[in-house]
Design a protein around this nucleic acid. Structure first.
Lengths: 147, 147
DNA sequence: ACAGTTGTTTTGATTCATTCAAAACAACTG
DNA sequence: CAGTTGTTTTGAATGAATCAAAACAACTGT
C-alpha cells in the first residue's frame, strides 16, 4: 500500500500520460510498482484488498490503458497468462522458469540493442527484439519437482 | 498432399521417434512440412480435406505428441494462438508482423548461440534463448492498413 | 494371419483468460 | 457547478486449449 505522497507521484505519472486519475488506476500502478511480474488476476486480488468495489474488467481496462500509455509493459510468456510489469523504457529481457513459471528480469545482453539485426529480414521493418530465456530457476533446481 | 513415397518418409520419421504411425499423424506432419507456421485450427481444416473423420482434439493430441517427440516446434507469439512448424533442431528465430501477424523464420543472428549468456542470471540454468522480432512486413508496409 | 496389449482417436463437455457491450458513473473543463 | 468525455460496473460471450471416458487401431509376439 502506498502513502498519500506515493499516490500523488503515481497520479502525476497518470496525468503526464494524459490519463484521467482514478482510484483503480492508482491502485493498479501501485501494485505493479511494488512487485515484479503479475497477471491480471493477481493484480485484481491485490487491488480489491484496498478497493473492494473494483471489478476484474476494470483491472483489464486499466492495464490496457496503462500499457497503451507506456506506463506498464505486458509480456506473454508461452503457457502463462499475460504478465504486467511497471519497469518500462529499458527494453530488458526475461528469464522464465520452465518448472514454476517464475519470471526474472535480465538486462540487455550484448551491447545496447542486442540481436536487433537479423541477417535476412526480407523487407521487414523490425521495431523490437524480444528475448525470452527459458531455464530452471535456483529454487526449482534445489527442490525435487513442483506442482 | 503427399505421394505414397513421401508418406513413407513421414512414417519413418514417426517410427524413429517411437511414435505409432497413424493416418492423422502422417496428415499433420505432411501439412506442416509444406507450409510455414500454422495454428491448430488451420492444421485441422487442412487435414480434414483428406481425412474427413479427424477431430480437432485429435489434431491437438497429434501436435502435442509431435512436439514432445521433437518432430515439430510450437511457438506462441503474444496475441496469436499457438503456431506449429516442422523446421526443428536449428533453434532459429521469428519475425512477427505487428499488423497481419504473419510469421517468418530468421536464422540465428549473432554467431551460433546468440544471446545465450545473460549478464546476471541469478542461478538460473538457462536452456533456450527464444528471440522474437516484432515489426511490419513488406506487404503491410505497402498496404495502407489491414483488417 | 491373429489375439492381446498399449496407446490413439473420438465424442462430448469444461476450463481459463480475455473481450464485448450497454448502462451507470466519475474526472476534468470552463 | 454543470457539461462533456472517458471510465467503471454489470452481465454475458468468445476463443483456444484441455480433460475424461469410451471406442478404436497399431504394433508385439505367436
Amino acid at each position: 500500500m502506498a502513502t498519500d505522497t506515493q499516490q500523488e507521484v503515481l497520479a502525476g505519472r497518470l496525468r503526464s500520460a494524459q490519463l484521467k486519475v482514478t482510484a483503480p488506476r492508482i491502485a493498479v500502478l501501485d501494485v505493479l510498482s511494488g512487485r515484479g511480474h503479475l497477471d491480471a488476476d493477481t493484480v485484481f486480488s491485490t487491488v480489491i484488498e484496498h478497493l473492494p468495489k473494483t471489478s476484474l474488467q476494470a483491472v483489464y481496462g486499466v492495464l490496457a490503458a496503462l500499457v497503451a500509455a507506456g506506463l506498464v509493459r505486458k509480456i506473454e510468456p508461452a503457457g502463462s497468462p499475460a504478465l504486467y510489469e511497471a519497469r518500462v523504457g529499458d527494453n530488458h529481457h526475461h528469464l522464465v522458469c520452465l518448472n514454476c513459471k517464475q519470471v526474472q528480469d535480465v538486462d540487455c545482453v550484448i551491447g545496447e540493442s542486442p540481436c536487433l539485426t537479423p541477417s535476412d529480414m526480407n523487407g521487414f521493418a523490425v521495431q523490437v527484439a524480444e528475448i525470452t530465456f527459458w531455464g530452471v530457476c535456483s529454487s526449482c533446481q534445489a527442490a525435487p519437482a513442483a506442482t
